[in-house]
Design a protein around this nucleic acid. Structure first.
Lengths: 176, 176
DNA sequence: TTATAAACTAGACTGCAGTCTAATTTTACA
DNA sequence: TGTAAAATTAGACTGCAGTCTAGTTTATAA
């Protein structure tokens, strides 16, 4: 991870990694399915952090406010801890290999937290929404991924959080 | 493109391509910046098709209905013409290189059509939405990308269109 | 025509992710 | 302890994207 930070993911070869670790390629590929899979280690940490974020969400806020605050903090965390290059590598390699078991797990912890927060919003809503909670959870996941993917693909000067702010707002408007 | 369809993108090497074309690597890389860039050719076609779709949208439909129908047809087109593997390759390689000028152009034709259709929806809406048209266009792009990215990452048996249906519905609910 | 520049082509070469096989170390258990 | 199986390690090797350099063809213009 240190080498990646110093030189960028693409500019660090596996040979360089194993040399820096006094290890060997055989050993490396015994433990990891691919170069990209090393990044997985971080996703376990991320899910831990999200859970903490969730538990620290102020109870006095409205459900919508809680959902909004949560996603905002997730985005801030992603940008600060991972950064655009790291996210690009994860989003890119996830599509081309079976690496990233954490990331590609449709039942990952983060998604469960999304669901819990959306359930709160539905419950507090005066009218029943036309979509089921499963559908709304899916829509929310798609939205988050879209925001991140867009932010990686079209690098601007805005933060990830800013870039996704209006999409999130509009999503919340969808609840009467 | 024929080789890719037969054997899959990853299983066709550039050597194989140039051999099948009685060409050479030097020639290939004179015309294309990368292997992935060949796929670009298709995006020009796609944008042509979208424009036609847009022009054929029934005028008697509500603006929401028109937007919905349009995106549904885009998704159907993407799935049928490109397919999951092709989309995965494009979405993946777009993050790792400067290839795909079409795809990575924030002003591409498709996005303009989105904007036009959203403008219709806003105009027909009784109350002014809290977001500007530019913000809504961005949110809509992010949503579409998210739906496609999700569909590529978590392959299920559902069509792309089905997978994104509820996200799209919820987006439209966001307009009062 | 011919000189010169620009566009294009050829294919050997480089760098790197990932594989393969043979060794070495660790574990399990008699 | 001894020994067989399993886990781990080493590093040479393979396959392929992309580069490099030296040609060859085509366009331009006197």
């Amino acid at each position: 991870m240190q080498l990646f930070k110093e030189k960028g993911y693409k500019n660090v070869s596996v040979d360089e990694i194993v040399q820096a670790c006094n290890s060997s390629k055989g050993s490396f590929y015994h433990h990891f399915k691919s170069k990209a899979e090393i990044l997985n280690e971080h996703f376990a940490l991320a899910d831990k952090y999200y859970e903490q974020l969730y538990n620290e969400l102020p109870i006095q806020l409205t459900p919508k406010g809680r959902l909004q605050l949560f996603l905002e903090n997730v985005f801030i965390y992603l940008e600060e801890t991972f950064g655009r290059e790291f996210l690009s590598v994860v989003y890119s390699t996830s599509l081309e290999s079976e690496a990233h078991l954490y990331f590609r797990n449709p039942n990952r912890k983060l998604f469960m937290l999304f669901e819990a927060l959306i359930a709160e919003v539905i419950e507090a809503s005066t009218t029943k929404p036309s979509l089921s909670i499963k559908q709304l959870k899916l829509a929310f996941i798609q939205l988050s991924m879209g925001v991140i993917y867009y932010w990686c693909t079209f690098p601007e000067d805005r933060s990830l959080q800013e870039s996704g702010a209006s999409a999130l707002e509009h999503f919340l408007n969808g609840f009467s």
